[in-house]
Amino acid sequence: MSETMITIILNGKSAPTAARDLNELVANFNAGSNRVATAINGAFVPANARATTMLKDGDRVEILSPRQGG
């Protein structure tokens, strides 16, 4: 079985990935146990839509989490 690698822009940096959908990407990213929110190409992707959101070469993915703020 050969995994097809694509290259996405993950949090502003070029990143090769074998993940096919956003759910898989998030799981690989932080083992799925963190509170994160996701967006692709500037549009919000709710947590319950990640599994059906397929990744394409060149997608700009944001994975954000809570931080201090003013």
Partner: peptide
């Protein structure tokens, strides 16, 4: 209190830790 969202680092739990504190 005001809070924000920022890019998470792979493998980090920064966000979860901050949320726990708040």
């Amino acid at each position: 209190v005001t809070v924000s969202l920022r890019r998470e680092m792979a493998g980090e739990k920064t966000g979860a830790n901050f949320l726990k504190l708040i």
